[in-house]
Amino acid sequence: MARRGATEYAPAVTNRPLVPAKDVWRRPGGLSRWFSRHWLEVAMVAPLFLYVFFFMLVPVAQSFYFSFVEAGTQNVTLGNYREIVNRSQFKDAFINTLGITAIGVTMEMVIGIVIALMLARGFRGRGLFRSIVLVPLGVPTLVAGAAMLYFIGFNGYLNEILRDLGIIDVPVYWQQSGFRGMFAIALADLWKATPLVVLILLAGLEAIPGDIYEAAGIDGAGGWQKFWHHTIPLLMPAITMALILRAIDAFRIFDIALVLAGQAIPVMSSFVYFDYQAGNTNTASAAAVLLLFMIVVFVIAYIFLVERRAEVER
């Protein structure tokens, strides 16, 4: 075991295996010998792991604790959860978050695939087009929300463009709860997040070997067939990664919703913030725990449903 580890790699900080042997605890003096060889590695790793533990994992545990105790008495209770699910503001936040995620991520994936396919072709001006596509990636999320203020406002550009195109006669009031509000927030998210989707999908496209296309072309497969039967299945790992990353971020959406609509269109994160701001740390924590629960359920469900089915088809 020790020999194999030593030949496998020989980094500067050690020439012995970093991962202690399984029986290091039982061997007399095993632990202290391991530590005396590897104190430098331990010292290098410790700050990161301690920071993540104390400032990320401990606060999450604290939130769970807050959510299950009664404000003031500290008695264990489910009352915080019971209270928020009965609040209409919370129901709106829950539905808005699901709606924004569904609308936003769907649009991002479709438009992302189109742009990635365009960029995968070699054409003159590709570099410039790529730069333009990546610009929103750098725009602060808050600014994406602020920019959308001028589009979705009653006198905004979205109404103006739709009127000039003759699609609507009377301006639409977008900043209201319900489908319009979700769409408006998803639109801002779309602008900000599509570049990331494009980057991930483009990386996936470039990993597809070109001779598969040539073989498909010789077999006489048309463009659409080629796309549906060759590109999409081969792109599946990239699609999964982009979709999960984007959905997680869409569930956590905060800046855009806050700037665009404040409390008028609540989402889960902004509900937690305003509830905390109002002094209800315990119910705010309960909502935050439910948001975490939504994300975990989504990720597990996606991996089980989509990945399993893909494996069966293969």
Binding site: V52, F55, M56, V58, P59, V60, Q62, S63, F66, L245, I248, F251, R252, F254, M268, S269, V272, Y273, Y276, T281, A284, S285, A288, V289, L291, L292, I295, V296, V299
Partner: peptide, 14 residues
């Protein structure tokens, strides 16, 4: 760790 919503960390941190 990205799966943790930031508000679940920010509330106790605050």
């Amino acid at each position: 760790t990205r799966m943790f919503p930031e508000v679940i960390i920010a509330t106790p941190i605050a």
